[in-house]
Simulated scan of single mutants.
Amino acid sequence: MWPSRTRTETVTCLACGDQVTRSMAREYDKHGDRWDREDKEFEHLCKSCHDELCHYPRDELEALLVESEAGETDRDAFLADYLETVEERYGTLEEES
């Protein structure tokens, strides 16, 4: 059975760090599948940070971030590896004029 949604649990927004009541937050599932809840622990975003997110599909993004060692290498090395991998798989990004 699902826990009651009337609880006043406090959660921390993973983007800004603010503590908000659970009712004022949105669940975030880094795997992009918030409906499959078995054995999951969700992170949370406050409503304003959630509204600022891009809500387009992010197929393959989590695997690409893990492969590019996000959070495990310094920022410059990660960005260089990420860009190289994206260009190899999807082509170069060109600005539209």
Rank of each mutant, 00 (worst) to 15 (best):
C13K: 05
L14Y: 04
L14A: 11
A15W: 02
A15T: 14
A15S: 15
D18R: 13
Q19M: 11
V20H: 05
V20G: 00
T21I: 09
T21F: 10
T21D: 13
T21W: 04
R26Q: 12
Y28P: 00
D29T: 04
D29N: 12
D29C: 09
K30C: 11
K30D: 06
K30N: 10
D33P: 00
R34P: 10
R34S: 10
D36K: 09
D36P: 01
R37G: 01
E38F: 06
E38I: 09
D39I: 03
K40S: 01
E41Y: 08
E41G: 07
E41H: 11
F42Q: 03
F42K: 01
E43P: 00
E43N: 11
E43T: 10
H44C: 09
H44K: 03
L45N: 01
C49S: 06
E52Y: 01
H55P: 00
P57A: 08
R58Y: 09
D59Q: 08
D59Y: 14
E60F: 11
E60T: 09
E60D: 15
L61E: 09
L61G: 00
E62A: 14
E62N: 09
A63Y: 02
A63V: 02
L64E: 07
L64I: 13
L65T: 00
V66C: 02
V66Y: 03
E67G: 04
E67D: 08
S68T: 08
E69K: 14
E69W: 05
A70R: 10
G71P: 03
G71R: 01
E72A: 12
E72T: 12
T73P: 01
D74C: 04
D74L: 03
D76L: 12
D76I: 12
D76S: 12
D76N: 11
D76K: 13
A77W: 02
A77L: 14
F78Q: 03
F78R: 02
F78P: 07
L79P: 00
D81C: 10
D81S: 15
Y82K: 05
E84H: 08
E84N: 14
V86F: 08
E87W: 07
E88Y: 04
R89K: 13
Y90T: 06
T92V: 12
E94P: 01
E95I: 11
